[in-house]
Simulated scan of single mutants.
Amino acid sequence: MMDYRALEALSAVIEHAGFEKAAQVLNISQSAVSQRIRQLEFKLGQPVLLRTSPPRLTELGRKLSNHLQQVKQLEQGLQASDEPATELNIRLAVNADSIDTWLAPALAACADSQRMNFDLVIEDQRVGLKRMKNGEVMACICESAQPVNGGLAQALGTLRYRALASPEFVAHYRDAVTPSKRQYSDQPYQWLQQAPCLRFSGDDQLQHQFLNTLNLQAPRRMQRVPSSGGFVQMALAGLGFGMIPEIQVREYLASGELVDVAPETVLDIPLYWHYWQTESDYMAQLRHAIVQRAAQLLLPL
Rank of each mutant, 00 (worst) to 15 (best):
residue 1 M to K: 11
residue 3 D to I: 08
residue 15 E to T: 14
residue 19 F to R: 02
residue 19 F to Q: 02
residue 22 A to D: 04
residue 22 A to G: 07
residue 26 L to I: 07
residue 29 S to D: 08
residue 30 Q to M: 12
residue 30 Q to L: 03
residue 32 A to P: 02
residue 33 V to N: 02
residue 33 V to C: 08
residue 34 S to T: 09
residue 35 Q to I: 10
residue 36 R to C: 08
residue 36 R to H: 10
residue 39 Q to P: 06
residue 40 L to I: 08
residue 40 L to M: 05
residue 45 G to Y: 10
residue 52 T to R: 01
residue 54 P to Q: 05
residue 54 P to G: 00
residue 55 P to S: 02
residue 55 P to V: 01
residue 62 R to T: 04
residue 63 K to V: 11
residue 64 L to Y: 02
residue 64 L to S: 03
residue 64 L to F: 05
residue 66 N to I: 07
residue 66 N to Q: 15
residue 67 H to T: 02
residue 68 L to I: 09
residue 68 L to S: 10
residue 68 L to H: 09
residue 69 Q to P: 05
residue 70 Q to V: 10
residue 73 Q to A: 08
residue 74 L to H: 06
residue 74 L to Y: 11
residue 74 L to P: 07
residue 77 G to Q: 07
residue 79 Q to S: 12
residue 81 S to G: 14
residue 85 A to I: 10
residue 92 L to R: 01
residue 92 L to I: 11
residue 94 V to E: 03
residue 94 V to P: 00
residue 94 V to F: 04
residue 95 N to T: 13
residue 96 A to Q: 03
residue 102 W to G: 01
residue 102 W to M: 00
residue 106 A to R: 00
residue 107 L to R: 00
residue 108 A to D: 10
residue 111 A to P: 10
residue 112 D to H: 14
residue 116 M to C: 12
residue 116 M to N: 08
residue 117 N to F: 15
residue 121 V to S: 05
residue 124 D to R: 08
residue 127 V to Q: 04
residue 127 V to K: 08
residue 128 G to S: 10
residue 128 G to E: 01
residue 134 N to W: 14
residue 137 V to L: 01
residue 139 A to D: 07
residue 149 N to Q: 15
residue 152 L to Y: 14
residue 153 A to P: 08
residue 155 A to P: 10
residue 156 L to Q: 03
residue 158 T to G: 11
residue 158 T to P: 01
residue 159 L to C: 12
residue 162 R to D: 03
residue 165 A to I: 01
residue 169 F to Q: 03
residue 174 R to C: 09
residue 177 V to W: 15
residue 178 T to M: 13
residue 180 S to I: 13
residue 183 Q to T: 08
residue 188 P to R: 09
residue 189 Y to W: 13
residue 191 W to S: 00
residue 192 L to P: 02
residue 192 L to D: 02
residue 195 A to W: 00
residue 195 A to N: 06
residue 195 A to M: 07
residue 195 A to H: 01
residue 197 C to K: 09
residue 198 L to W: 01
residue 201 S to M: 05
residue 204 D to A: 07
residue 204 D to Q: 05
residue 205 Q to Y: 14
residue 207 Q to I: 07
residue 209 Q to G: 13
residue 210 F to G: 07
residue 212 N to H: 15
residue 212 N to A: 15
residue 215 N to M: 14
residue 216 L to S: 06
residue 218 A to C: 11
residue 220 R to E: 15
residue 224 R to C: 14
residue 226 P to Y: 06
residue 226 P to L: 09
residue 227 S to F: 09
residue 232 V to A: 00
residue 233 Q to P: 02
residue 237 A to W: 09
residue 245 P to N: 00
residue 247 I to P: 09
residue 248 Q to D: 10
residue 252 Y to E: 12
residue 257 E to D: 13
residue 261 V to G: 02
residue 265 T to H: 14
residue 265 T to Q: 12
residue 267 L to H: 09
residue 273 W to V: 01
residue 274 H to S: 04
residue 280 S to H: 06
residue 280 S to L: 08
residue 281 D to W: 13
residue 281 D to R: 12
residue 286 L to A: 04
residue 286 L to Y: 03
residue 286 L to K: 04
residue 289 A to D: 00
residue 289 A to L: 04
residue 294 A to W: 00
residue 294 A to V: 09
residue 298 L to C: 05
